[in-house]
Design a binder for these strands. Sequence first.
DNA 1: AACCAGTAAGGACATGTGTCCTAATTTTCC
DNA 2: GGAAAATTAGGACACATGTCCTTACTGGTT
Lengths: 351, 351
Amino acid sequence: MSKSKPTPRPALRSTADFARHVGLARTTVSRVLNGQPGLKPKTIARVHAAMEATGFTPNAHALHLKGKNSATIGICMEDLLTPPAVRKLAALQRLLRAQNYTSLIEVLDPGESRRVVRHFLSMRVDAIVFIGLFDEAEITARISELVAHGTPHLVIDHAGIAGANTVSLDRAVGMTAVVNHLLAFGHTRFGLLGLSSPARTAGERLNGIRAALAAHRLDFDSCTQSLDHLHVRAGDFEYGRALATTFASSPNRPTAFLALNDEIGVGALHGFQASGLRVPHDLSISGFNNQDICAMTTPGLTSVDQQIAPTVAAAAKLILEQLNGPARRRPVLRTIVPELVVRGSTGPAPV
Amino acid sequence: MSKSKPTPRPALRSTADFARHVGLARTTVSRVLNGQPGLKPKTIARVHAAMEATGFTPNAHALHLKGKNSATIGICMEDLLTPPAVRKLAALQRLLRAQNYTSLIEVLDPGESRRVVRHFLSMRVDAIVFIGLFDEAEITARISELVAHGTPHLVIDHAGIAGANTVSLDRAVGMTAVVNHLLAFGHTRFGLLGLSSPARTAGERLNGIRAALAAHRLDFDSCTQSLDHLHVRAGDFEYGRALATTFASSPNRPTAFLALNDEIGVGALHGFQASGLRVPHDLSISGFNNQDICAMTTPGLTSVDQQIAPTVAAAAKLILEQLNGPARRRPVLRTIVPELVVRGSTGPAPV
DNA sequence: AACCAGTAAGGACATGTGTCCTAATTTTCC
DNA sequence: GGAAAATTAGGACACATGTCCTTACTGGTT
């Protein structure tokens, strides 16, 4: 009762502190913690009890310094506001944790990639994963640095980075499937919603559309129509709605609409319905990504599923192979084939 | 050209390696890295050039061991599949990074909290933040450990944890606002959708409803009706739709429906519309959380906004105060007042 | 009482870093 | 060319840890 401080912070920051507290030598405590033989059961119990009571934990940084693998993976995210990307993150983190890997997660704002990657390297992560679509030049530079550095890496989603180990969805094939589905319904005039975007994945998807049309001896330019230039893409839902409204009153309106993503697709669905058109009676719409919202509209939105589980499983496998297997000389590419999910928003072309 | 290996991995893992590579003493390099005076500009340039070329980074673990603050915050997430929680995470990480803090993010599956918190402590994080709703007993135990340990902490969303610094939404007030809004429209019979859930936040919201009704001298039991027991809550959207379908054919149907969250609200909206009822002409519906989907329905869903930006700003402030300010004796509680966002799904009661 | 096995104590070293100190080297100036 | 100033080299220590080693203490059995 002499001092006013009622044991404010024992602050057992080191094994030495902790050993003093237990009344044992530091080396003895260390032997207990590392399960070495030749210790009295009573001593072992005493140390464990004190750990419970005080919550002492050995300093992970010192452990790493001693050569113990930190078992950490750095994950760079395009952002945390894109639901499919976050779902991949969640699934990947779960798979890695099952193998006792921790993950460091950072959002990679434009221009920040160098700083973030250097931070990961200073943390001596075992591998670095990129999830999402990034600035092409920036990510290419980072990958070549990592390759030179000999650090295992993986790019999920962003295909076509030189020298990078990649897992990505074959968006062209997905789009081909959608177009074939609509061709079978008799559609021959397609409206493109948001597909004129300069983004790499847009071009990839246009190729898928071209392939499907070419296989049916149809001309791309005369079969497709885009009004993307008439609206500014701020929010995707509103963008889709605006495009639909314009298309609704346009002459020679297409009978099937292909959206860049589900938000635009759902927006278009509402836009057309608000204009008095019936879906799929008057026209068909498809989205891309098969997010939850596709099942929440009336009718449901036909979409292309990203196959997140297989994607992430392949990603985890590739990372672990790099960590445990022999070094590879050439980058590994894995392509995931998407799956068309047909819902009520697509149907026979109007006669 | 003698050896076959084309410089496979220089593997500059330490300042010593790096200094050897540059041709300088380790201490000289260290002085350059830490901006000490008395160095020839040419030497400084040489070191920086070599850093660029090799990508060498000082070992963060060794730095921490030397006493340099690791500037890391541990964040425990309920899960990464709840959009509002992820938005808070994204915003918080951004604010912390602006103060040069890194964050470690882990999903806290039931029963895993002890392991995760111990891992954070072994990483010597400066603070631990919990975002979401957790198992009450588990989180309470973790908080009391952290308090005993003297580690700064914060709980976001999960109110009522003994001894915890907390930032949470006043859900009762939000619900009161919704009910007042509907009372003003002449509604007096309310259907509760999912609010019989045993979750803590459901009870809190029921209190808000009770308060609003009591203020208008209305009896809770005779004014409200719940059919939650008739359906199993698997997916929220489907749950809402099923509840609506049942309510649609029920005698003495309420004229206003209060949903536990937006997914249930949107599901109910579709369920009622599929049953031939018009919203808001025949009945009104409100959601909770004001997620993006509220604006994507026809009509838009009236909902209660969580005020994510103010919540996260308050959270960041509380964390930084604990890190920089004097130690507090008593836990700090911050309550965020939600805001009603009125859309087309609510309107005058049918006559 | 003496001996021996069983157990704990405590010193030493290495890990990568920053910092301090002194000695060695280079550069500058006259 | 020589002295002074500026710069760099290199050794030492501390940080928290695991491991090895030697020394010291404990207890029980003969």
